[in-house]
Design a protein around this nucleic acid. Structure first.
Lengths: 336, 336
DNA sequence: TTATAAAATGTTACCAATAACACAAAAATA
DNA sequence: TATTTTTGTGTTATTGGTAACATTTTATAA
């Protein structure tokens, strides 16, 4: 490995001078700069980040801690995050918590040890508070995306669950539905709570009496919708829903799969709508009506806020960025 | 930040003893080990990776350098890679080259500087040789996935383009197609070359005279299929293809979009098949007939080979892992 | 009981880069 | 020309951890 010492020797200057050339810091005569730069090129010198991190206490590495990169929502988040990080001269570490608190906790320790400068995180749930406290204790800045955590005041980039829910439900109501089921995510995740709250509020506003029997909480990523769907289908005609509002893309897809297995046609017998597009490549075979969140921007903005914190340019008060969803109406909710 | 010196002082031992406890190396009496471990917990000590990297010359960070995480193929690769890396105690850096040689080159420099222990890479093309040489010069082990590079002898995890192509084409031929167009990726990417070679070979074996007019090379990820599709469609009836073999998922989707714009129905007027599933969530609205490659395993195996190299446990000769595709026949190629 | 081996712990130097300070040479000012 | 300021460059110490060697303590054998 080529070090500044090798350069220094060959250029007949001190290592410090080389360091100054590399970092463009301090005063350097044009002559020495050129001489040193020439040798740097010649020997193919690349600075050693470990040594730099050790003295500077910054690694230029950020971490993206999400639940699962294979969820297209987070795929796009990751892409946005990586683009912004690259643009700002940072590298990005990828971690998948799978919505598991322990995995998240393991990663947090690993990340601290790795010396990341900051963490962009979609927390597994409210219990992530413990892991965030660990970050705080270690003075590692973080920004939350998609989900908030009770009792943690920090920079946020989140969607607008209320308006997304509202537009989806109003669309269903306009289509003539009044018995609308909610298959929600876990109650310990803020987005699920917000969507549920919005669900009841909007039904009330529309003069529709909500029925607790029609709502349920399941995982955002494990496939356990089947039982719930079966239950809904086996309700007596008078109570059986004609539409399902799935809290995310994954639930929606599994719901549709279950419905098909049960010979319930979508949308003819059952409309389905959800949050977040399951299709990473836009506009191919579009089927699901949904509230598309600007996932790329979640990542992009998140990294932007994070770097502001890392570099200490952020405002004193925490920033809350709320990105509105876009409602896309497609076949899964259209009465033929 | 808590260091081994803090622990040492509080435990009344030398820093070296603490280091030994942390790393479970050397001989330590049970008594001291317990004493030190207690204080480590108490002070919440987490080792500083920068310092460790500096002495040990290894960072426990690997890099995944792919073309685009939003391509579902690479999304799954990334997930497999991250899972294996985590399991082996490594962290994973994510980089998207967008099939651009310069971006790839920038990343390679960044990665070397970051001190990654190894790189798992889907090279942008044959010209990536230059970037790989940089890695070699810096003694950074790497493994290539999905694509080979002429003139670089290294560990590989690749698919089987020949058999995938063969099965797809035989399926089309069995469906009665004889005028089959190939919309291929760039000729400087090994997978494209292999698929083209297989295409001609298999047509020949089937006694079908191949027509150069029916083959073309476009980007694997930019949407520039439209002109090509238009040309194919405007061929005289006698020459116009009845099926299109798209070299990857992205091309296939854009091809179908173009066909729809041109009012050509798929599969009624035109069958379409391709490599790689564009759908990250399995079995939802499946439409495309394709050769599905075990993307997750590309990443998983790739990291496994890479870590073998990094840790010096690998065999002397380079390893070539070839993962066969699975043909999935769906609607896009079925004559109704 | 002493010599010797083994086990446990400590000391020193080093990894690559940089901050902080020191100092010489050149330029500006008196 | 002498003095001050500025500019350019060098020296030393530090960052957190560990390898290599040194030393002390304990256990074992003679």
């Amino acid at each position: 490995m080529v070090t500044i010492y090798d350069i220094a020797k060959k250029a007949n200057v001190s290592p410090m001078t080389v360091s100054r050339v590399v970092n463009n810091s301090g005063k350097i005569s044009e002559k020495t700069r050129e001489k040193v730069e020439k040798i740097i090129k010649e020997l193919n010198y690349i600075p050693n980040n470990a040594a730099r991190s050790l003295t500077l206490k910054q690694s230029k590495i950020l971490s993206l801690l999400i639940t699962d990169i294979t969820n297209p929502f987070y795929t796009k988040v990751a892409r946005g995050a990586e683009d912004k990080a690259k643009q700002m001269g940072y590298r990005l570490l990828l971690s998948n918590s799978d919505e598991s608190l322990e995995k998240e906790s393991e990663y947090v320790d690993m990340l601290i040890s790795s010396g990341v400068d900051g963490v962009l995180m979609a927390p597994a749930g409210d219990e992530s508070k413990k892991n965030l406290k660990t970050l705080i204790k270690n003075k590692i800045p973080f920004v939350l995306i998609d989900r908030q955590v009770n009792g943690i005041d920090c920079d946020l980039v989140i969607g607008d669950s209320y308006h997304g829910t509202r537009q989806l439900l109003e669309h269903l109501i306009k289509q003539g539905h009044s018995k609308i089921a909610l298959i929600n995510g876990p109650a310990n995740i803020s987005t699920a709570r917000e969507r549920e709250k919005a669900y009841f509020e909007i039904l009330r506003l529309a003069g529709i009496e909500a029925n607790k029997q029609l709502t349920s909480n399941i995982s955002y990523r494990q496939n356990d919708s089947h039982k719930v769907v079966k239950n809904l289908i086996s309700l007596p005609e008078s109570k059986r829903p004609t539409a399902i509002f799935a809290a995310n893309n994954f639930i929606a897809i599994n719901t549709i799969k279950s419905l098909r297995q049960l010979n319930v046609r979508v949308p003819e017998d059952m409309a389905v709508v959800c949050f977040d597009d399951p299709d990473p490549i836009p506009d191919f075979n579009p089927f699901l009506t949904l509230a598309a969140q600007p996932a790329y921007n979640f990542g992009y903005m998140g990294i932007q806020l994070l770097i502001e914190r890392v570099e200490g340019n952020g405002p004193a008060e925490k920033q809350r960025v709320i990105l509105p969803p876009e409602i896309i109406i497609r076949n899964s909710s259209m009465r033929k």
